[in-house]
């Protein structure tokens, strides 16, 4: 049974967990780095003096801290995008990928790798991926046109996602003879936070912040839409405008996440669902709680995998492996 009164406590707990997760990320991993080094590096950065340990400074400031913050931001974005998607389609099994935004982002990113454009700089692949996400969004809006019902949107999104997947598969097949290119493409498609830096965080923050603010702005319309489209219209919701804004919101959040970290599934599907089971469907509480839970889940997965193995594991696969059994247990416990 949902307990909306627990929402503030849940949100506070999740935010605290996220902060602890970010701090934990800075000491987990290879190299002899402890909390003392973290304090020393942060002090040095704040005061502008050189850190005592050159390698600790490189590991904590240049690698771990931006990565941890990016992981948290991407998890939050995916959780929030999932809540908006499920509200838009009024279906708890909908996930952000159904609009084909991730697939579209992947096509352009992989195309850039195929033609060697990524060698021009670190910014190329994220830029292409984001351009792919925007192009997919424009294609979706154009194709659906004025017949913008939820069902048409869903079907058009599925078709566009299928085209994107097919094109990506074709490019992978063509790249098969050049094994290192194929390896690079597959690694990107699996999703990764490896070697992400302050630059990646800087590129992603504005669109992610914009997407989340937009989601919060849409919270009342999302609530009203739960009553059905005709009811929402009768209550004064401009459903066409609402849908356009919701699509832009999802594209900003998912497109940016895919651009900086590759395709990460599952978070957008299950996190909002789990949070909804706990605190109910009101988006005023659901959106921030989903964002915080998404951040915590992705941080936990990234910290645990980095701390337990030196093998680079795709976060999307691990989130599914950890979250899905928990989700199933929760469904069974709560009677579906």
């Amino acid at each position: 049974m949902p307990r909306p009164s627990q929402a503030p406590w849940l949100l506070a707990g999740l935010l605290l967990t996220a902060v602890v997760g970010v701090l934990a990320q800075t000491v987990v991993g290879p190299g002899d780095v402890g909390f003392g080094d973290v304090v020393d590096v942060l002090r040095a950065r704040v005061t502008g003096t050189p850190a005592n340990n050159r390698l600790a400074d490189a590991l904590i400031w240049a690698v771990r801290l931006p990565r941890a913050l990016l992981v948290a931001c991407c998890g939050a974005a995916l959780g929030c995008a999932g809540a908006v998607t499920q509200g838009l389609f009024r279906n708890p099994m909908a996930e952000p990928g159904v609009l084909g935004v991730s697939s579209g982002a992947a096509v352009l990113a992989v195309t850039g790798m195929f033609f060697g454009l990524d060698s021009l700089g670190l910014w190329v692949t994220p830029t292409l991926a984001f351009a792919g996400a925007v192009a997919t969004l424009l294609a979706l809006v154009t194709i659906v046109g004025s017949r913008r019902t939820v069902a048409t949107l869903l079907l058009a999104g599925i078709a566009i996602a299928a085209i994107g997947s097919a094109l990506t598969t074709l490019l992978l097949a063509l790249a098969g003879a050049r094994w290192d290119l194929g390896l690079k493409m597959i690694a990107w498609l699996m999703g990764s936070f490896e070697s992400r830096s302050w630059a990646h965080l800087g590129w992603s923050l504005p669109p992610l912040a914009g997407g989340m603010l937009l989601a919060l702005w849409l919270r009342r319309d999302l609530d009203v839409l739960l009553l059905g489209e005709p009811t929402a219209r009768s209550l004064g919701v401009d459903t066409t405008r609402f849908r356009n804004l919701a699509i832009i919101c999802i594209a900003l959040l998912v497109g940016t996440t895919t651009a900086v970290a590759g395709v990460i599934g599952f978070v957008g599907l299950v996190v909002p669902h789990m949070v909804r089971l706990w605190i109910g469907p009101r988006h005023r509480r659901l959106l921030p709680a989903s964002a915080a839970a998404g951040a915590c889940l992705l941080l936990a997965v990234d910290t645990v995998t980095r701390g337990t193995t030196s093998v680079v594991l795709p976060p999307g696969a691990i989130t599914s492996l950890i979250g899905a059994p928990w989700f199933l247990w929760l469904l069974r416990r709560r009677g579906g």
Partner: peptide, 13 residues
Amino acid sequence: HFALTGEQLIAWD
């Protein structure tokens, strides 16, 4: 051959 994180590379110096 195996995947190596940039973090491990830096730690090896």
